[in-house]
Design a protein around this nucleic acid. Structure first.
Lengths: 344, 344
DNA sequence: GTGAAAGCGCTAACAC
DNA sequence: GTGTTAGCGCTTTCAC
């Protein structure tokens, strides 16, 4: 089987005995006579014609490609978002490119700038850190962009936000109701957007409930990962030897919470008997641990879906007003936070 | 800040007072005089010029894009592969598109055919089912393709294979050595490539070791997922009430193995005391369960890396001989398969 | 070393 | 309704 050169509109036109314009019209569903349609389709089928996407893009100034950029494919949350974004954009005929930039803002910036090469029509960006440069770039992005995550109101970009504060409130309220009074926070880096939001919300809600006043109950992991979580958990235990132990821990995300569970168990603590653990993001990971992990869903799938929809809307109308939508959190109670005694 | 039209080579040329050919040469690092280089670069910088990727692609007949297609982003194994593929292809200047086709071979076929639109220079494909049509298509793919997974030798396509049989052997040998004699297999669908390979290897190795003769110890889940695994595990228990219980279970992948662990524990069995559990793929999931999951690594990261490299090599030389490489499995022993008694 | 010009494959005026 | 033709923005012969 030899390799045939791919046929072009010109050859289809010749075979059909018509003009290239007619071929293009038929292929794009523009009004044409039935006999014309038939002739063109016959020739196209015969030759196995496939339009060249690049040539088309150059002409119509549109690539039918979108980019999704996230900071860490290792985190299941981003996989969920990616899948949601892919599902809705694909259904609208777009191809999706993924770019797993690291959490380094420089890389994100490079990505944003690279979009000036016009290889994609739009971008869904889920950054974890926001620098001035990045915000500046978001003021006039190379292509329509929607950010998953919170950006300052001064930045005129569509974005879909998680309600971290509400999520923290949900988690703390639940722990409080189930009798926990000494709740620790194993947070991610506070120089990240979610890290700082969750940290502040925790302080506020803890104060409101009148619990967890000790600053030693706040630890900050270097990253939102299992490894960093272990390290942070060990630090927490070192600080809170004996009587100062927390009776609950809130993790900045599921990975941190799971790491905390592991360390606690290794140290002989019972979960949820001695200490309850709650995570955030409600990833599948939380369903496979024992006990399973109570977690606050920040709606990652929904955020992905919404982001994709905002982007598609923006693509349809570049001048529409900026939209910022917030997804509400929900709490899924599982084994890791069952009440201590028989109380409810 | 108004939206400027993106400058083109023509404008750069005019600003620099040179021809477009010279601009192109300088920008592509072809021999040019120092003063020329300077003039062009100055103009390009001044105008904020960025080459248009589509126009370039049309001219050079190359997109600098690659596609990675997998059957299920929900499975961490594919995420690992994707990340590996992205890392190596990106370092060579390619952008990566992902396409999460379902396990439906029709969708895979549609994807393969869509590549005739020339929107990508190559494809890394990790299909789970192989149909005749699909194999036929792989005989003359639209773009250079490498398959992650086993394809018949008659299909002239680069591919990187897992050694499922070796992996099963490793797992069974380990279980045998630790005193297990009645090993069940909770496999994925046997009409999939990995499912059939693992099923056959299990039969062979079990026979060799003289264990697990009962066919009731073989169950087949509908899918390689947690949900399907639970269902299969329940069926297994229904079959093996009381004295017929297995003392070990091998899962067709980690998800199935974890589902088995969950069901066993819910039914009051101790792991690894009553029954040992071993998974395949060695995903992160296995590290968060309790006990943690002994698992056979099929080298998903390495497979991704190798696949990407094979593809890049193929892109450099279309006519090079087909290569088929196999990645060797390794066993990571964790808590779920600790020996029953004090024996080793 | 540099410039003029052709053309990658397609769509969209514009004329008929 | 259909054909002719001019480009989209770039690279690359080919002369000079």
């Amino acid at each position: 089987v030899s390799v045939e050169a791919r046929p072009t509109v010109v050859e289809v036109a010749r075979h059909a005995g018509v003009s290239v314009a007619s071929v293009s019209r038929v292929l794009n569903g523009l009004p044409s006579s039935p006999t014309m349609v038939e002739k063109v389709l016959a020739a196209a089928t015969l030759l196995g014609y496939r339009p060249n996407a690049m040539a088309r893009s150059l002409k119509v100034q549109r690539t039918d490609q979108l980019t999704f950029a996230m900071s860490d494919v290792g985190n299941p949350v981003y996989v969920t978002m990616m899948r949601a974004v892919e599902r809705v954009t694909r259904s609208e005929g777009y191809r999706l490119m993924v770019s797993s930039v690291s959490s380094d803002p420089g890389e994100v910036l490079a990505l944003l700038r690279s979009l000036r090469h016009s290889y994609a029509d739009g971008l869904v960006l889920s950054p974890i850190r926001l620098t001035g440069e990045l915000l500046e770039e978001l003021h006039h992005p190379a292509v329509p962009t929607v950010v998953i995550g919170t950006v300052p109101a001064s930045v005129p970009v569509d974005n879909v936000r998680a309600n971290s504060a509400g999520g923290v409130r949900l988690a703390l309220a639940h722990l409080y109701e189930t009798g926990r009074r000494r709740v620790a926070l194993v947070n991610g880096p506070v120089d990240t957007v979610p890290g700082s939001a969750r940290g502040r919300a925790f302080d506020r809600q803890a104060a409101r409930l009148g619990v967890s006043r000790d600053l030693e109950l706040r630890v900050e992991a270097d990253d939102f990962t299992l490894a960093a979580g272990r390290k942070a958990a060990i630090e927490l235990l070192a600080r809170c030897a004996g009587s100062r132990m927390p009776d609950a821990v809130l993790g900045g995300n599921d990975l941190l919470a799971i790491a905390v569970m592991q360390v606690l168990r290794e140290e002989g603590y019972d979960i949820p008997g001695d200490v309850a653990v709650v995570g955030m993001d409600d990833t599948d990971l939380g369903t496979v641990t024992s006990p399973s992990l109570t977690s606050v869903s920040l709606g990652s799938e929904q955020r992905g879906t919404l982001a994709a929809q905002l982007l598609l809307d923006r693509l349809r109308d570049v001048d529409r007003p900026v939209r910022r939508v917030t997804v509400q959190p929900t709490l899924t109670i599982r084994g890791s936070s069952a009440p201590k005694a028989g109380r409810r």
